[in-house]
Every structure is written in C-alpha cells, then in structure tokens.
Amino acid sequence: MMKIVPPKPFFYKGGDKAVLLLHSFTSNTIDMKKLGKYLQQHNYTCYAPLYRGHGLAAEELLTFRPTNWWQDVLDGYQLLKDEGYEKIAVVGLSLGGVLALKVAQELEVTGVVTMSVPIRREAAFLQKRVFHYAKGYKQLEGKNEDQINVEITRLQNMSIDSLVEFQHLIQKTMDKLALITSPISILYGGLDDPLYKDSADVISHNVATQHKTMKGYPNSKHLMTLGIDKNEVNKDILTFLNDLLW
C-alpha cells in the first residue's frame, strides 16, 4: 500500500501586505501554491491554512465540520496578525471563497477575492464530491477496484452531518452579503457549472461595497488557480490587490 504524504499549510514571506489564501473543498493548499509564489514575487506575504481533514482519507475528512475549517481560517488570520501584518486581504476558491466572504463579513480585511463560489449546494451534491475524492485517494493508495468499492459502500453509510452543516454555512454566508463593505473581486470559470456565473452575479448585486469587479475566464473550469487561464487569473488578482488602499 502506498503511503500518501499529507499536504501542509504554507507561509511565503514577502512584503508588509499580507494575503490569506483559502483552498477548496476536498482539495488542499496545492490550490494556492502557484498564486502564493506569484504574489510573493510581487512583494506580498501569503499564508494558506490547511483545513482539518483535508489531504487525508475521505473517512477522516467527514469527521470534521465547517466549524473546524472556519477555526482554521481564524487561526490563519490571527497568525498573520501575530506576525505583525496589520493589513490583510483574503483570497478564496470554492469553499475557500465562501470562507473568504465570511472573513469579510466578520473581520477587518483590506480586500477580498472569490473564485468559483456557489450560492447554494445541497448536502447530497457535496456527498458525491466526497465519493469522487475518496475513489481518487484510494487509487493513489494503490488499492484494487474491489477493495475500493467495498470501502466506498462503507463510506456511504457514514453520517453526512458535516455536509449538511456545510450546506447551511453557504446559505448563512449568502444571507449576509450586505455586511461586506471591503473591495471585492468576483471570478468564475466559463467552463464551470453555470451555477457559478449565477452565483457571481448574486454576490456582486448584494455586497454593500461599490468597489467591486466581476470577471469570467472562458477556458477555466472549477479550480481556476490550476487551469489554463491561471496566469491571467494570477495577474488579475495582483492588479486588484495593487489597487487597494493598504
């Protein structure tokens, strides 16, 4: 059996301006590494927390809840504060984008960037994501098809309470968009589910700030930071950050 090395948080130190980078659901900090390195090269300090359970087997992932992931985000924000960074922007992808909106609602941020953010997701859909992740993880471990099928069946009987909580987190965050007064950039992939374009429109329409931009990338799927348009995405995020009042 092949042992998978768990991913880790990363801290790329640059200049005085700090950016909190938040990865997507069932993924890990690899979502944000290229963007983080790019921003570091342009004098930004970047920290990306790893949410509990992410990068581990799906069975372990489901033992953690969005409350745990939110605490990981709060700890990441506090880490930057403790390191002396007074001005912090937040950038998030998918689940990370939802959490970035929540950060902008509850904490002081210089600006916020969201990518591929859903305004709604049912727990059943999220469960399918977990199954897809589980199968890929088990294949990487070197397990055969029969063993994988047995373990996926067992996984189907696990509680999805954490996914129901995730569904509610999205709903509650979208209900409070009017609390966001910081500048915001809302990005989505043209090859992603049409829901994400609709979500971008809803977010743009409901945030309180007048400093807002929205852009779609025609060649991008869900993981925009790793796709064909990633260089353009990185440049646009840098331009947005450079225009903020730090």
Rank of each mutant, 00 (worst) to 15 (best):
Q139P: 04
I186P: 02
T63G: 08
I170R: 07
D146V: 12
G53R: 07
F10I: 15
G14V: 05
I30F: 14
N242K: 09
G15M: 10
G76D: 10
Q147H: 08
M115E: 04
Q210P: 01
T181A: 09
P49I: 10
V202P: 02
S199R: 07
V103P: 01
C46D: 12
H23F: 11
I160M: 15
Y85F: 13
V113E: 01
F11L: 05
I152M: 07
D193V: 01
L74P: 03
V5A: 14
N43Y: 03
Q167T: 09
L163Q: 02
A178M: 09
Y85G: 10
D236E: 13
L169S: 13
E151P: 07
V19D: 13
F10D: 13
S159H: 12
G53W: 01
D146Y: 14
V5I: 15
Q105I: 00
D175N: 15
T45V: 05
K13I: 15
L101G: 04
K235F: 00
N149D: 15
Y85E: 11
K8A: 11
V117R: 03
Y133E: 04
Q41W: 04
Y196N: 04
K143D: 12
I4L: 08
A123Y: 11
Q147D: 12
D229P: 00
P194V: 00
P183F: 06
R65S: 11
L61T: 07
K33S: 11
Q78G: 03
Y85V: 12
M224H: 05
A100W: 02
S220Y: 01
H211T: 09
H132V: 14
G142K: 10
Y51P: 03
Y77E: 02
F11M: 07
S24N: 13
V233N: 00
A208R: 09
Y137E: 07
D201W: 02
K230D: 02
G76W: 00
Y12R: 04
E106I: 00
N157S: 10
K102M: 08
L191V: 00
I148F: 07
S204M: 05
I88C: 08
A100Y: 04
I180T: 06
K81F: 09
N144G: 11
L177Y: 05
D236C: 07
V91N: 03
F11T: 05
P218Q: 13
A89H: 04
L195E: 14
R65A: 05
T173H: 10
V164H: 12
V117L: 10
Y12K: 09
Y77M: 03
L21S: 08
L169Q: 10
P118W: 03
K37F: 04
K212E: 08
Y12L: 14
P66I: 05
L226T: 12
R52A: 08
W246F: 13
C46Y: 09
Y196I: 07
P218Y: 09
K81Q: 15
K17L: 10
R121K: 12
L61E: 06
K87T: 14
Y51F: 14
T45E: 12
S94A: 10
T181N: 12
